Lab assay of single mutants.
Amino acid sequence: HNLTITQGKLFFHYNPKLCLSEIHKMEEVSGTKGRQERNDIALKTNGDQASCENELLKFSYIRTSFDKILLRWEPYWPPDFRDLLGFMLFYKEAPYQNVTEFDGQDACGSNSWTVVDIDPPLRSNDPKSQNHPGWLMRGLKPWTQYAIFVKTLVTFSDERRTYGAKSDIIYVQTDATNPSVPLDPISVSNSSSQIILKWKPPSDPNGNITHYLVFWERQAEDSELFELDYCLKGLKLPSRTWSPPFESEDSQKHNQSEYEDSAGECCSCPKTDSQILKELEESSFRKTFEDYLHNVVFVPRKTSSGTGAEDPRPSRKRRSLGDVGNVTVAVPTVAAFPNTSSTSVPTSPEEHRPFEKVVNKESLVISGLRHFTGYRIELQACNQDTPEERCSVAAYVSARTMPEAKADDIVGPVTHEIFENNVVHLMWQEPKEPNGLIVLYEVSYRRYGDEELHLCVSRKHFALERGCRLRGLSPGNYSVRIRATSLAGNGSWTEPTYFYVTDYLDVPSNIA
């Protein structure tokens, strides 16, 4: 807008934040220059609390790290170098490059900038070799853009010569660093050979998330399962459950009422301010606690030095998902009996873990797994792929695949051998790939016309006998059925096997 004052003059007093240069501009645009008398524009009460600059400061050096910015700028000295009290560095987070010096300023003089007072450097006698002032900004957020400017702080001049310097606002972004852990990993099994893994992005990506790394490792069953005799009275049979499938998407929606109208769909109840505040506090606490764990609990591995020492970490090797089922080394339970199943799973520490690289999504279907087997899954978020990966501390989750139908069934015939004193040795093959492992066998036998009897055969007993022995049988026709019990439950009964026990007292003698 054009402003013209045809008559009258300007009068400025007691404006401590208004620089004289701005008042002189007002004289020019209003056409009143030359009308004012000496005392109409006070030299001592206008701009006496402001830094009124008329020179431009330029930054000469900028260096960044993930949490620091090192700045240096060209030296500046007023005509009387004693008038320079120091520099004021202003900075704040700036997602967009549209910041002005006066953003967030209120009537009390406060604003949204963080201000650092910096002492002037030592003055050199040689004007050509003056030290460049600077400042190291610490405690910054990774991968965050900051708006920065600097200006001088000078003393009051009796001659009211307006001098000083100020830089333009520059924008500097800190470097990326390792992201925080992925949030809320959930693993479920939808079949006997697959596990579905879902997660949420890290709360602090500290860069642009480029991919996720998912490692999985087959877990050995508890050692007590191999040692305890679950045929003993009072000892509860062990059981394991597989990871249940995901709930429906509708039930997972946030901010939804727990109660549904019987007449149909209901609208979600909005969260109160107290609920939102509580969630923010919980989120802040979780982030602080995660940072504490990362800094205190997890110790970084030592990389190899120039002395030739090897990095103890196993090298990563990509495998196809079809090879995942046989990740671990199978060892027989008892070496003397080769027909026992290889369900003991000690994992070799030198073995390469299978892994998958996930790009542009937060889910993965891990296939080719062994049925009813526990897996430990390790999830890392990465925001750099080359020249070397920059990934987060791992988040861990466990899951067990679903049982395989008929995996616990005894394959092959049940054979028998009759000894003296009416002892019958029953023999059968253990299931080759049971659900988890076989903890015991149930032997059901009966003599024709009598009630059915049951015998429990422990895992250890089966390994020693290759089956079991029935003792003290009365003469007669017998039928026997056997079924295995694994961590997933009972298998199917075998087809009945028949044998006849004679009275050993009636056996004919070869003595003449």
Rank of each mutant, 00 (worst) to 15 (best):
H211M: 02
K361H: 05
V327L: 11
S344L: 11
R400F: 12
H352I: 04
R318Y: 08
R471I: 10
P338H: 10
V414A: 04
T288V: 13
F499L: 09
E356G: 11
H211T: 05
D273C: 03
P332R: 05
D385G: 09
A309Q: 11
F285N: 04
H352C: 09
N490S: 11
N360D: 04
I276Q: 15
P403K: 11
V397W: 05
K357V: 11
R390M: 02
G306W: 12
N206M: 04
T307F: 10
S398A: 12
P238N: 10
Q384H: 06
T497V: 08
T303K: 12
E258W: 14
A336R: 14
V327E: 07
R286P: 04
K278F: 10
R370Q: 14
L280T: 15
F372W: 09
S367G: 09
C269S: 04
F419W: 12
K432A: 11
Q219D: 08
S268Y: 04
N295P: 13
D385S: 02
F372E: 04
N383V: 06
K406T: 12
T373C: 02
P403I: 13
L487A: 04
D506K: 03
K253P: 03
F372N: 09
L440K: 06
P332Q: 13
D450H: 13
H454L: 08
A463W: 10
G412E: 08
G374K: 10
R316W: 14
M427T: 15
N422C: 05
Y448K: 14
L232E: 07
L213A: 14
S458P: 06
S223Y: 12
G412P: 09
P431Y: 03
P314S: 12
I276P: 05
K271V: 05
A405V: 09
G476L: 00
S304A: 04
A335M: 09
E378K: 09
R447Q: 11
P349T: 08
N383A: 09
T241P: 06
Y500A: 12
L487I: 05
G374R: 09
P312G: 14
P244T: 08
V297S: 09
P354G: 12
R301W: 08
S251T: 13
L228A: 13
S239P: 08
R319L: 06
V443G: 01
T401K: 00
V397T: 02
E452Y: 15
R319M: 10
S257L: 09
T210N: 04
R469L: 08
K233E: 14
D222V: 10
S492R: 02
F289Y: 07
L455S: 12
V345R: 07
P238E: 08
K287F: 14
E388A: 06
S268I: 12
P205S: 09
L228Y: 14
P270W: 06
N383Q: 06
E388K: 08
D503L: 04
L235A: 08
S251N: 09
S509L: 07
W216G: 05
D385Y: 07
T347C: 06
